[in-house]
Design a protein around this nucleic acid. Structure first.
Lengths: 209, 209
DNA sequence: TCCGCTCTTGACCATTTGATCAAGAATTAT
DNA sequence: ATAATTCTTGATCAAATGGTCAAGAGCGGA
């Protein structure tokens, strides 16, 4: 009688390493070409691996894509999650915006991956958008609204404020080609960060402090 | 001796009509699926036309895409072009932002088409970005800077202000799936417009009027 | 060491898809 | 009317691509 092993495959060292290599390669390829535009061969090539070998770890192209999204999603919301109701409102928002700008600069590929997914109707992360994301935003919008009603922040729609922060910060990653074309390829990163903080926050200082 | 006709094909009524039908169908398909994701068959089907017939008007898939981009690009910049140095700064910016918000709502497909193209490195419109777009933005940034130096507008980096306006307004078209998921599918359009105007412009009121 | 399990890959397959072609239908000009 | 031109499409092709398979190489525990 054959021994019954745990059928869920334990992650070998090799598995861990190769899955990581694949996800790394996949991020590069998917963020450049999108899901449809990317090919399994491209990802395999970037991961220094034969196509069948890659498909040994992820049986379908879609599996790589989904794993990659999940692998990246959690970290993406961390800055918003860190918004502290007990902190100073302007300082908290400033920290949030700065963190998002730094993420855009440090990891533009992840930003483009999400942008692509959402632009195409978010077929893979619909659940995430309508669940955890919606809930987190509701929670943080309430925090912002609280700051406003207690006079520590000027009034504005909290939801649309969050959208504006997302839009502006991610713009520098998602549309970097356009930004660089218009600016003429200069831009040290820091100046954008300063300008964005200024534009988004100046109007939020409370009237009678 | 065969008669030498003008080899450049004169646009027949049928040609004009069919090219228009194709571009209309192509906008729907490309804006949903991107260049790589879209198929000629899909476009042909939407245009009620056989694939070879479609390829009689545009010989390659890429030709449809480029024609569509050119067909849509010109109108896209009109609101920015209309920014009037002689007008009231806040009113002008308000009109610009409102116009962009309305374009996002009225024609989200065009917005997504561009977003996709730029996200993927803008291979087809690089020239446009580095030429006409860069020039127009430089011109209008100068107008905004003038308003600021003459005290009619608070100081901020004009380029990044324009980027912020683009980012926020187009966000509602490009990421509508996310916006709707987070808001829970309500949203009448007008409230977003008001909120965006408020968030972007409040900080720009001059200090000592 | 040896046996079983994991890992790797060249060859291959089926489908999708951009593009072509030849032949016929419709339209236009004379 | 009729000849020339434009328009339309079924059939077909070649390349790209997601995915499979069988067979062998490598590794780890007894």
């Amino acid at each position: 009688m054959p021994q019954l092993k745990t059928k869920a495959p334990i992650n070998t060292r090799i598995q861990a390493r190769n899955k990581e290599l694949i996800l790394e390669a996949a991020l590069e390829v998917f963020s450049i070409s999108g899901f449809r535009g990317a090919t399994v061969d491209q990802i395999a090539a970037r991961a220094d691996m034969s196509k069948p070998n890659l498909l040994y770890y992820f049986r379908r192209k879609e599996d790589i894509y989904v794993a990659l999204l999940e692998h990246t999603l959690s970290g993406w919301l961390e800055p918003l999650r860190a918004l502290d109701p007990a902190g100073d409102p302007l300082a908290e928002l400033s920290r949030y915006i700065t963190a998002k700008m730094q993420m855009s600069e440090a990891n533009p590929m992840a930003s483009r991956l999400f942008a692509n997914e959402i632009l195409h109707g978010a077929p893979m992360i619909e659940k995430f958008l309508k669940g955890p994301l919606k809930q987190l935003v509701a929670e943080k919008a309430e925090v912002i609204r609280f700051w406003m009603t207690t006079g520590k922040l000027a009034h504005a729609d909290p939801y649309h404020l969050i959208f504006a922060i997302w839009a502006v910060t991610q713009h520098y990653a998602d549309f970097s080609v356009q930004v660089e074309a218009v600016l003429g390829r200069r831009e040290n990163g820091g100046s954008a960060q300063k300008a964005v903080l200024d534009i988004l926050l100046r109007g939020l200082r409370p009237r009678q402090p």
